[in-house]
Design a protein around this nucleic acid. Sequence first.
RNA 1: GGAGAGGUGGCCGAGUGGUCGAAGGCGCAGCACUGGAAAUGCUGUAUAGGGGCAACUUUAUCGAGGGUUCGAAUCCCUCCCUCUCCGCCA
Length: 430
Amino acid sequence: MLDQRLLRDNPELIRQQLARRGLELDPNLQGKVRQVRDLEEQRSNLQAEGNRIGREVGQRIRAGAQADGQELASLREEGNQIKSQVAKLEEQEKELEAELRKQLEVLPNLPSAHSPEGRSEADNVNVKTWGEPRRGPRADGSPLEEHWQIAERLGLVDTERSVRIAQSRFITLLGQGARLERALINFMLDRHSAAGYGEVMPPILVNTASLTGSGQLPKFAEESFKCAEDDLWLTPTAEVPLTSLHRSEVLAAEQLPLRYTAYTPCFRREAGSYGRDTRGLIRLHQFNKVELYWFCHPDQSDAAHEQLTRDAEGVLEALELPYRRIELCCGDLGFSAARTYDLEVWLAGAGAYREISSCSTCADFQARRSDIRFRDGKKTKLVHTLNGSGLAIGRTMAALLEHGQQDDGSVRLPAVLKPYFGGDRLLAEL
RNA sequence: GGAGAGGUGGCCGAGUGGUCGAAGGCGCAGCACUGGAAAUGCUGUAUAGGGGCAACUUUAUCGAGGGUUCGAAUCCCUCCCUCUCCGCCA
């Protein structure tokens, strides 16, 4: 959420920054903020007067006056009048404030000064490329297979039965496939833990306050699955429970940065993506992900963003998967993000780079929504929060399959996975 | 699911209608004492918003929301949460 004080004092700045995302600032908003402030002032002045009367009545009673006597009748009357006036102002104030909040909650974060200008994906900036993309065809002239072909052929997944169990866009992993998924989760968690991230296994049903705190609600309700009978939703990313891990807390400055890693399943409706990526592991309603998350001092957040991104890249490098780092332009930034690097892994069979991680700094946007502060001398300040995938497991498996496919039909796995998977190859005949 | 108990400041805990934003203790910070420390003593120690250069001042907040009252942590209603016992369950 944006800073109301900033909106009051410097609406022009907000207008300019939102414009970089291609959004217009409602010109009424500033007036509304001021109106709420004025009502607040009137109301609190009246309340001060009411409190004074209350105190005076108390004093007179202690001095011997009759509580319900004639002497205090006029004071009681005055108190009653103030009370009804306050009630009226309060009603207006509440209404206006609710309106204001509704408008503010759907405004996205302001882009960072570093974020490049641009309207869409096409304006994103390629920051770096790592590794040599593998390209077909094979020695025998046939093209490289796509991961879903390999997965079906090796019996790693069962697509049809997954529909029977749930519906389309759900996958069942079998045998070596299930084992590889588990190996990847463990490998990533171990790696991040060793780098100093605290391991967390949070609830994956989260309440409305948690989703609002990290920015998924109220604007993106249609993207999440909701439990009908409860105030609980299936988390779309571990970012949600991790943000709320410290919701409404005041952290000690010495604790910062707090760094966490969490494996969770993630659930997304993928509304509006019908027909896209219908095969394989790329776009599912349920997928596994290992997340990285930082709570840090505002002064540290740029360096933290680079470090977090490096930690995610480190996983790709350890897995020997070629990738590139893309910096999102203002127009392509997610709702809560001020600045984002997407990591795109090379899918050798598809012959394209695909997003496998998104590393964002949200500055104080989520911290303000979630009320997460730290003690800064006498005062408290909002922390900065950062999140990134490290990595999406299904897409990692897809990349490994396409990258490691061999002419004999097997798939060679990177050496680091051997202790986790128990082998360095997915075999064709099992 | 059934029965009961309870939600007060960083923590413990007192407080059943009137200077209560809240006694006392612990913790923490500063000062004194000490060669240094412990112990001891003194002082200070919630958050958010408004006004003010500041000292300061004002409003709100004792789980949440309503109500009674001139006045509510304290009385009434609704909801949420936590704990204990029983049942069920991986």
